[in-house]
Nucleic acid binder design. Structure first.
Length: 485
RNA sequence: GGCGCCGUACCCAAGUGGUAAGGGAGAGGUCUGCAAAACCUUUAUGCAGCGGUUCGAAUCCGCUCGGCGCCUCCA
């Protein structure tokens, strides 16, 4: 079954065919770096991380571009408000670029923790002013834009496909809008390509029209086309960017080049808190730094992957907690599997029962091929875990080859593709030799008192070790231990 | 007002025509000195409600009720 992707342009799943077979160009709208990332960013960038990882897993050579917006969009009204970065900088009494730089670092730090692979290129909007100006020049030359008082606006009425992506009709959308019509624009839906800077505006660049700054859609057109070409395969972003941002991107890009801009538009759905959208303006957002104080970042990743990228995800402590428990169980299976594998390797096991991995791989791939259905794929991992546990506890040993196969499958599907199974899990090996020796000592003492049926002492040792972070489990083959993470 | 999405067990959540994945929680059991872990069994004759199409619908169509998103910035 070929890979199919839900394309916002056609509002249906389509078989994915890249422009050049084996090569995929993907652009995803990155963050505006003026405040720390929140759970919504995590959902979005994990979604696209999975998409990129899976495309690569299928053998594609993927070029993944994700911008950093450090010019700042505009608050309040789309074209007339105050630059967010500048506003934050004024509050903090620093240069706007300081904010941009420190938040960019914070962003990468959070994303790294979530196991998100970095984009191949993270272009900064401020580093591509020239490219943006070039597009604006083209649009002015072919009559799709007009200049007023040093600012340049895009003439929406001249682009017949405007509204195709978001499914709205120009006249209707203008009628119901709450934005007041401002004087400079010929049509209320026209948007700024270049804005002349007022006297107090710190971030400004020279241009043929005025000293100013670029509009808030043009950066993505400039940077995506610079690195991926005038027509490319996939453009992604949050659903809230569908209109007007992506609609405007299409309009200005296609008007400038005369070519189709993007073949597949992919939008991830949003995170809600108590059923309400998490957003800056509502002030109900959960920053990742706060979330990481309570949960292991990998658990946050796992939680997000348990729902589909096109579904909304309601964030609550109970839900993450439940995911945490489930995740721990999965890791337990992996840990037990790897310990058994190590054992089989040291004893050079030559016999043992076989294990058929193929149905799990098949189901997993089918799930991912169907518009990256990660939650279904996670379900397959749990099915595999159950059968693995079953085999591990059945009494008859698995062959070395079978153990290797299972481990490979978990590593490949859960590790390489989904990024939720680490190569190394905290095992009985412990951090240090001393730790390991001490634990062996405790276990030996406890084994001795258990032999004498001194259960209270035995339990004191077990409870005491748990209190300082070591779990003890008595198994048939002996006592094992591990650290609480 | 325009455009669009969603409503599946106690909770989260897959499932777009063929007879309800998975996770959490709960109940019973196996194992164990007891725990823990693991395994087995169990929890929706029904998928917001009502009609319709069909041999067959959670899945398609219509209406009703409820929740949400976009049309200002936001992933």
């Amino acid at each position: 079954m070929p890979l199919s992707i839900y394309n916002t342009l056609s509002r249906q799943k389509e078989e994915f065919k890249p422009i050049h077979e084996g090569h995929v160009g993907i652009y995803v709208c990155g963050p505006t770096v003026y405040s720390h990332s929140h759970i919504g960013h995590a959902k979005s960038y994990i979604s696209f991380d999975i998409i990129v990882r899976y495309l690569r897993y299928l053998g594609n050579n993927v070029l993944y571009i994700q911008n950093i917006t450090d010019v700042g969009h505009l608050t309040d009204d789309a074209d007339e408000g105050e630059d967010k970065l500048i506003k934050q900088a004024r509050i903090d009494r620093v240069h706007p670029m300081q904010i941009a730089e420190s938040i960019t670092r914070s962003y990468f730090d959070d994303m790294d923790k979530l196991g998100i692979e970095r984009p191949d290129i993270s272009p900064r909007a401020s580093g591509h002013i020239i490219e943006q100006i070039e597009i604006i020049k083209k649009l002015l030359a072919n009559g799709h834009a007009y200049e007023v008082n040093g600012s340049v606006y895009y003439n929406v009425q001249k682009f017949k496909n405007y509204g195709r992506l978001s499914g709205r009709v120009l006249e209707e959308s203008v009628e119901g809008t709450r934005v007041e019509t401002r004087s400079e624009k010929r049509h209320p839906a026209d948007f700024a390509l270049w804005k002349k800077a007022e006297s107090g505006h710190i971030m400004r660049w020279p241009s043929p029209w005025s000293e100013g700054f670029p509009g808030w859609h043009i950066e993505c057109s400039a940077m995506s086309m610079k690195y991926l070409g005038e027509t490319f395969d996939i453009h992604g972003g949050g659903m809230d960017n569908q209109f007007p941002h992506h609609e405007c991107e299409i309009a200005q890009s296609e008007a400038a080049t005369g070519k189709p801009f993007v073949n597949y538009w992919v939008h991830n759905n949003l995170v809600t808190v108590n059923g309400k959208k998490m957003s800056k303006s509502l002030g109900n957002f959960v920053t990742l730094k706060d979330a990481f104080k309570k949960y292991d970042p990998i658990v946050v990743r796992f939680f997000i992957l348990q729902s589909h990228y096109r579904s909304t995800l309601d964030f609550s402590d109970e839900a993450v907690q439940a995911a945490n428990t489930g995740f721990d169980k999965l890791m337990n299976t992996i840990r037990n599997l790897r310990e058994e594998l190590m054992k089989a390797e040291t004893e050079q096991r030559t016999s043992g029962s076989a294990f058929d991995c193929s149905p799990y791989r098949k189901h997993f791939l089918e799930a991912m091929d169907d518009d990256f259905n990660a939650p279904l794929a996670v379900g397959v991992l749990f099915d595999l875990a159950r059968e693995t546990n079953h085999a591990l506890n059945s009494g008859q040993k698995l062959s070395l080859d079978a153990l290797k196969q299972i481990d490979l499958l978990f590593s490949e599907l859960g590790g390489t593709v989904l990024g939720i199974i680490p190569d190394q899990i905290g095992t009985a090996a412990g951090d240090t030799k001393t730790e390991s020796r001490l634990m062996d000592l405790f276990i030996n003492i406890r084994a001795e008192v258990r032999k004498q049926k001194l259960w209270t002492i035995s339990d004191v040792i077990r409870d005491g070790l748990k209190a300082v972070g070591f779990i003890i489990e008595d198994k048939k083959e002996g006592t094992i231990w591990r650290k609480i993470q």
